[in-house]
Design a protein around this nucleic acid. Structure first.
Lengths: 343, 343
DNA sequence: AATCAATTCCAAACCGCTTTGGATAAAGCA
DNA sequence: TGCTTTATCCAAAGCGGTTTGGAATTGATT
């Protein structure tokens, strides 16, 4: 059933039917109701392809998921972020277009996506330091919102980020307040923007309390269980081993915990851990009582908010870039406790 | 730059330019080269919206990701599956459309997606027993491939699945051969088709070796770390506690491992664990040496193959349903060993 | 009663491509 | 030489909607 057929059945012109369905004023209310009823009766869905061509809008948003070409890792937060964003799109009649792209030919993908007219806007995932994509998308001239930030970018752009520096600073201070003096950071890869900020928050807190950051107690690797395990094991084997860990993710944290337990130490007594918890749906940090003390910020909610920002930007392309900084909560769990007394 | 402009610049008709670019024979080779060169020079990308309308094809595939409305959990394998499928789509000029849908209004989503003409085919994720979506998509009449199977469905349909029954049977037999007699299953939710099959494989192996399955040693819960931890803790507290666990996922396995270590037992000596490893990129089972003994099957590869099946089906809608059963590898890691001697 | 402004509807153009059905010129054949 | 093929290109008609620019009808105003 298409518009013309429906119009014929109603004895109206396609014009009127179209207007009736789209809520334009120049159509009699009784006519509109007739049309609406008929549309429902024949379960008419306007052909998206035609709408897109006629309106010149794609009614779709592109998410470009970069895959690090060396490691082939898909960021695990991505699924929940998408789930949040997807809600917003479907509520607003937008489609979500996903491109999974190795980071060596990202540029081509972005350009094509826009030139082909496949999307009205783009969400940028996994920004790195001095990310080339920000100037690129400015040049292309398409609305976009970055999930995270790209330090070292000169021009303004829209972004939504968690205050990673602040979160890690607070986590570190919390541990310092508990008496810990030898603190370790198990961080993600530090060419990623968020990881850099977390490191800054960590060292800032140390320095502010007169503790000199020890490079041997700061690792920067992929956020996997194994990497966390290895990094923590190595540090725990040092002469002056750390009594507390600040860890970049739930998964790494599980690796750190394993290293701690493997070393015969008790979590929350001998060694404390604070992780960052993205509230991934399949990696809940405890049911009622949180297991890990954590800086917490829902990545699904971030997905929702980012999507809303982008749709606004699309509706209002000349508006100024919007920025949104979310604060992470500090959740006290069972993985932290006072620093053990020196022997 | 659109087709008409390009044609004008070349002094040709849009018809000829279109044909030249799409490889039709009725155009002179030298003309074709001229056109190609000009297209590249002006970086012309044909407008997807127009192509879709003109050809009546969506050139897009829909992935409908169900979110269990009670738990709001996004299946973690989904990200890697998508990554695999995405490769295939971009190689073939298809877009990937993602709909994240709570499982209470799935039907509407599927119907609309097709009625609107947004997709040429659909991938069904997370099939359950007697899944309603299979008959629904048959009724709608759109090519689709199921990732997994839907037991209890009468009509034929295309699917790609891992031989879950066989994998879990082999894993169980492997443990029995190591001398284990009290085996536990930490399974996913058993209304999911794959979980049911895994359970069958587990009990089949037991029965075949004269062991009566003990309901107290079979849990069926969400595949989270915590659920794994709780289930294993409970079982390890039983009088006749299990000496071996067959576990449905890497993440649950990490919970089981934690329970084992928490109980003061040594993995691979006191207690053995076999997990199923989907080879998620951010959850590698060890670097060179696998940590867990595991039944292994790459979900990313499954994504690739499923996508290829669907594209074939779209190109050839009258062909018979295709079925593809992947066998999982059994990988020996450090989490298994001979059953401990009875005390 | 004549004029003007709404109100309500429609015909036709348009979005940017593909594709059908020729037209023209060159080549092949009897 | 005249006629049929073959090669090459083009005009125009879609695809299924939206949107512009009227036209016809009705109601209000003077």
């Amino acid at each position: 059933m298409n518009l013309k057929e429906l119009a014929t059945k109603l004895g109206l012109s396609p014009t009127t039917v179209s207007r009736a369905l789209n809520g334009y004023p120049e159509v009699n209310e009784t006519t509109r109701e007739r049309v609406m009823a008929a549309a429902k009766r024949y379960s008419y869905s306007p052909n998206t392809r035609a709408i897109r061509l006629a309106t010149g809008r794609a009614l779709a948003v592109g998410h470009v998921i970069p895959i690090a070409s060396q490691h082939e890792i898909v960021n695990p937060v991505f699924a929940d972020f998408i789930a949040g964003a997807g809600e917003v799109y479907s509520r607003n009649g937008y489609d979500m277009l996903l491109s999974v792209v190795r980071d060596d030919d990202e540029e081509r993908t972005y350009r094509e996506l826009v030139a082909r007219g496949a999307v009205d806007g783009i969400i940028v995932h996994g920004p790195r330091m001095q990310d080339r994509r920000v100037p690129l998308l400015h040049e292309i001239g398409i609305p976009f919102v970055v999930h995270g930030r790209a330090s070292g970018t000169s021009s303004a752009y829209s972004w939504l980020d968690v205050n990673n520096r602040r979160a890690f600073q607070r986590a570190t201070e919390f541990l310092i307040d508990l008496g810990h003096r030898r603190l370790a950071l198990v961080n993600g890869l530090e060419f990623m923007d968020f990881a850099m900020r977390r490191r800054t928050g960590f060292t800032d807190a140390l320095v502010a309390h007169g503790i000199t950051p020890d490079p041997a107690l700061m690792s920067s690797e992929e956020m996997t269980e194994i990497a966390g395990f290895h990094a923590a094991s190595r540090m725990l084997n040092m002469a002056a081993s750390p009594t507390a860990f600040v860890v970049s993710s739930m998964i790494s944290g599980m690796g750190v915990r394993r290293a701690v337990e493997r070393a015969g130490l008790v979590l929350g007594r001998d060694v404390s851990i604070i992780i960052h918890d993205d509230e991934l749906s399949y990696l809940r940090n405890g049911d009622d009582v949180p297991i890990f003390t954590a800086t917490r910020s829902s990545v699904r909610e971030a997905g929702r908010l980012t999507a809303e920002m982008l749709l606004e930007l699309i509706a209002n392309p000349t508006s100024h870039p919007k920025e949104r900084l979310l604060e992470a909560e500090l959740i006290i769990g069972q993985s932290t406790g006072p620093a053990p007394r020196e022997v």
